[in-house]
Nucleic acid binder design. Structure first.
Ligand SMILES: NC(=O)c1ccc[n+]([C@@H]2O[C@H](COP(=O)([O-])OP(=O)(O)OC[C@H]3O[C@@H](n4cnc5c(N)ncnc54)[C@H](O)[C@@H]3O)[C@@H](O)[C@H]2O)c1
Ligand SMILES: NC(=O)c1ccc[n+]([C@@H]2O[C@H](COP(=O)([O-])OP(=O)(O)OC[C@H]3O[C@@H](n4cnc5c(N)ncnc54)[C@H](O)[C@@H]3O)[C@@H](O)[C@H]2O)c1
Lengths: 218, 218
DNA sequence: ATGCCTTTGTGAACGCGTGCACAAAGATGG
DNA sequence: CCATCTTTGTGCACGCGTTCACAAAGGCAT
């Protein structure tokens, strides 16, 4: 029986082995003392807890540059996600095949969602249309949304929104970049107290309960 | 002089006003007691600290579906990022205009980087090429990388890597989705101890010092 | 069966971010 | 010029995640 010790996994992942063991214990995952964890069982258990054993139908709304790229991306299927439909408001796109699927018009949005039991939606429309699309998705029964549009979506309680903001990713890199440059020469105008604000700026969004809105002017 | 109080900002952002004030104090940002913060000065100060006052040249490597979408994305320019060049290994693409810029061949990678003083690179190549591209970028002087390929990149100390893994974003949504479904009926197989592992699964990557590698099989 | 060695599971300590509460600062009006 | 009111800046305590350290458990060899 192939096994791994928490120490091996921890080293590979670059984390503390005690944390790993404690986390596993929360999952009810019992290893064998003196031996380690049964790899197969461990994988199964984590997969199940993470929801990877069932597959989730998703819809992508807004089949432009980004939406088409997402539709073509094979990485979703391999993680248990199935693209149930591609939806766009442009009548000219309706019926056109993208990544092997015909693009459906926005009119069909509600029926597509309910027919397929979709609970996860991806929004890749322009920012101006995002909230409206979001509202329709939620009304139709979607309870999880992955948003690429640079807008803060407001949703009723019980609906999760994750926002992917590529500009912020770059800003975080730029922030560290600037910091690197500043270290060598003159001390930063701000003393390196390394306080909460600085650290918070390096982190990503905190969780499902509300993203940090962009306060900087575009 | 237009001002805002920490309380106003905190309410708008949905955070605690004390946290906000404390964070501002780390930035050396002094408000006026009884009045609040000078909006203009505050914006300038935060912008500067975040590195938004200078603009950063970036290169995008791998002009496929995703790379092209990124190149066409206007949101970067508005946040102070300038696409210095688009680079692809496919000879057939060389010279072809994408988003108004001619695609350059990988051979030119090093000279493009040094000529433009690029320190931030975006990798949108297939996973198999990512590490190799990364090595070349780093060797040429890039010290910050935004990686879209589903691979853990290894880089020397001093180089920051941020990984955007869209599958993981969906997995996090699916995880919560499953949890929602489980609450109504039978109790989850795992008692809702709400431990560190569960919470950690909702969080994103922690910071610049090492992403959490994907341990699940694809 | 017994003893040794490895690795788990976890209680306790530590570190850190967050929120509370309040004194000091400064504006504003009388 | 003084009183009052607003809002900042921050010491302090609380909560939570992380890490240490170790006893218990189990395999394995003798
Ligand atoms: N392209 C990128 O790399 C990138 C990066 C980050 C964020 N974004 C954001 O993602 C979104 C899409 O970007 P893009 O480059 O694909 O834009 P795009 O203009 O190429 O595509 C937008 C698509 O949405 C469709 N659409 C418009 N309104 C709609 C509606 N109400 N319902 C359904 N579909 C609708 C349009 O017909 C179009 O096909 C934008 O909000 C953009 O800011 C894009
Ligand atoms: N499309 C998506 O929505 C999406 C989402 C998440 C992650 N990704 C990842 O992003 C990457 C790109 O995705 P894509 O859909 O654009 O793929 P793609 O196949 O359309 O594009 C890849 C491009 O990279 C170029 N390339 C290959 N090797 C190269 C090299 N050594 N140097 C420079 N260029 C090279 C190819 O010529 C091609 O143009 C993949 O790793 C994919 O897994 C894509």
């Amino acid at each position: 029986m192939p096994t791994v010790s928490s120490e091996e996994l921890a080293t590979a992942a670059g984390v503390n082995s005690a944390k790993l063991r404690k986390d596993f214990s929360y999952l009810g995952s019992y290893g064998t003392r003196g031996v380690g964890y049964d790899v197969e069982y461990l994988v199964y258990q984590i997969s199940r807890e993470l929801g990877l054993t069932q597959d989730w139908p998703v819809v992508i709304v807004g089949i432009g540059n980004l939406g088409a790229a997402l539709a073509n991306y094979g990485g979703f299927a391999s993680r248990g996600f199935r693209v149930a439909a591609l939806i766009d408001a442009d009548p000219a796109m309706a019926g056109k095949p993208v990544a092997g699927l015909p693009v459906r018009h926005t009119d069909e949005l509600e029926s597509i969602i309910s027919d397929n039991g979709v609970s996860i939606g991806v929004i890749a429309t322009p920012a101006g249309a995002a909230q409206q699309v979001c509202d329709r998705l939620v009304a139709a029964g979607v309870t999880s949304i992955l948003n690429f549009a640079p807008t803060v979506l407001s949703v009723p309680e019980g609906v999760d929104v994750r926002k992917v903001d590529l500009s912020i990713e770059l800003q975080i890199l730029a922030f560290h970049e600037q910091r690197k440059a500043g270290e060598e020469n003159a001390p930063s105008p701000v003393p390196p107290r390394s306080g909460a604000a600085v650290r918070a700026a390096s982190e990503n969004r905190k969780g499902p309960d509300g993203d940090v809105p962009a306060v900087m002017p575009a």
